[in-house]
């Protein structure tokens, strides 16, 4: 299938696509990914906090059934393949955005898929906080809310940043998949050109650009995480 990759026709198609469609597709992928991650963070961060503080020995123990329900919901959403989930949340997309196709509409399944993932990542970040430091705060008369906001979250910022970066790059991958339901962006270009029209060069270009985006997000995220960590002696 890669025989005519660099034929004259293939090259001119690719050039045209690069000029007309790719710049906007990069932007679409970028904004869908970032916006979805932020929205998923808004839901996932508090849930991740609850997963840690709500435990029996946590700083804000919750009834056991609440924790069980929370865990079941998160595990359930995490076990549905994204391709299926995209279709399953059509009613929700219609309700929230008014449509099920288009770039903005894919934000809904992306957020639904990402927030349980982020909740688990936040959970693991918060568990890294030294329990002795939490106890020290308790010994100074901190309320559970103060412990969450002034100790647990700030102390795990470096870890949270690297986990959010993982989430961001994963969501970038999902957003490319959403090209199948007309999601726009680089994923859609790859599918339209590569799968439907056999223009593999364009597909490859789209894929390379996706890789570059992942690299970009990852290196920015890693740099921020390292820079924010005051435990390291810079």
């Amino acid at each position: 299938m890669y025989d005519n990759l660099f034929s004259e026709k293939s090259l001119s198609d690719a050039l045209q696509c690069l000029q007309n469609e790719i710049p906007f597709a990069i932007w679409e992928t970028f904004y869908v990914t970032v916006l979805s991650t932020l929205l998923a963070l808004v839901i996932g961060l508090p849930l991740g906090v609850l997963l840690v503080v709500g435990e029996k020995k946590g700083v804000l123990p919750l009834p056991k059934w609440v924790m069980q329900v929370l865990n079941v919901i998160i595990n359930l959403l995490r076990s549905i393949p994204f391709l299926i989930l995209m279709i399953m949340v059509f009613p929700l997309s219609r309700l929230v955005i008014g449509t099920t196709v288009g770039t903005t509409a894919t934000i809904v399944p992306l957020v639904v898929a990402a927030f349980p993932f982020i909740a688990r990542l936040v959970e693991s970040s918060l568990r890294e906080v030294d329990p002795n430091i939490i106890e020290a705060a308790q010994s100074m008369g901190a309320t559970p809310m103060q412990i969450i906001c002034k100790v647990m979250v700030p102390e795990s910022v470096p870890s949270l940043l690297s986990n959010v970066t993982i989430a961001l790059t994963t969501i970038l991958g999902y957003s490319a998949m959403s090209g199948i339901i007309g999601g726009g962006g680089l994923g859609q270009i790859a599918i339209n050109y590569g799968y439907y029209r056999y223009k593999y060069l364009v597909m490859l270009i789209a894929v390379v650009l996706l890789i570059l985006l992942v690299q970009l997000f990852q290196s920015i995220g890693t740099r921020l995480a390292v820079k924010s960590d005051k435990r390291l002696k810079h």
Binding site: D130, N132, I133, E135, A136, A137, Q138, S139, M140, G141, A142, T143, K150, V151, P154, E155, V157, P158, S228, D229, K230, R231
Partner: peptide, 28 residues
């Protein structure tokens, strides 16, 4: 919590907030 402000504690492992400066730790 109120009473604990009058009965403070120090520890073997110091238990300072690692992401705060010394001044911010004392302000905590």
């Amino acid at each position: 919590r109120q009473a604990r402000r009058e009965i403070t504690m120090i520890f073997q492992q110091f238990n300072l907030l690692m992401q705060r400066t010394c001044l911010q730790n004392v302000c905590f």
